[in-house]
């Protein structure tokens, strides 16, 4: 088993946190993992992405150009990364910021659109759309057990964000359940 995912969006959308959490969950599930963030000017706004690789064998390259999965939180990231998605690969897309019609140009890829911002807002945590998307990815791919993500949150949330632990869990579950109810659709054309 080898699973590669690129997570991308605006700086501030929690892209690096979500990627880091997925890697933490993978490690706690006994997998080999690498987490490669972009860093620098992105920290101050602008596009931001990170690459996570999970495998049951030694991982050579942490750099992946053609991933099996994507988590796309905004339109510029959709345009940049979806063309690189492997055939039959899955893109989890935040439909609050990316129109569904965009998927039409990519035959053979699977898309799971979810209203990540809405789900987070409904849980009273508008900043946590990242967790909704991560929940959807974990449900759609079963790459790590969801409990490992929830327990991973404990080790990863810094002290000053501790009060957000339950909100993170709730939004993650909303995304997870959304994906169980709505399966990914393959692009027609």
């Amino acid at each position: 088993m080898k699973f590669e995912v690129i997570l991308a969006g605006f700086g501030g959308q929690g892209i690096l946190f979500a990627g880091n959490l997925l890697a933490q969950a993978g490690m706690e599930a006994g997998l080999r993992v690498t987490f490669l963030p972009v860093y620098g000017p992105e920290m101050r706004g602008g596009t931001c992405n990170c690459t996570v690789v999970l495998s049951d064998r030694e991982i050579a390259s942490p750099v992946v150009t053609r991933p099996k999965a994507l988590v796309i939180m905004n339109l510029p990231s959709f345009e940049k990364f979806v063309p690189r998605l492997k055939p039959r690969g899955l893109a989890v897309v935040n439909e609050n910021l990316v129109p569904r019609e965009r998927a039409a140009g990519f035959p053979g890829r699977r898309f799971l659109f979810l209203p990540a911002d809405d789900l987070a807002e409904e849980e009273g945590a508008p900043g946590l759309a990242n967790m909704a998307a991560l929940g959807a990815l974990v449900a759609a791919t079963r790459v790590v057990p969801p409990e490992k993500v929830l327990s991973g949150l404990e080790s990863l949330l810094p002290e000053h964000r501790r009060h957000l632990l339950e909100a993170n869990r709730r939004v993650f579950k909303r995304g997870y359940e959304f994906a169980l109810r709505n399966s990914a659709t393959a692009s027609e054309r």
């Binding site: 880091n20 080999r32 993992v33 690498t34 987490f35 490669l36 860093y39 750099v63």
Partner: peptide, 10 residues
Amino acid sequence: DALLGQMKEP
């Protein structure tokens, strides 16, 4: 370098 410095692994 920055690649190894910034990436995470167990």
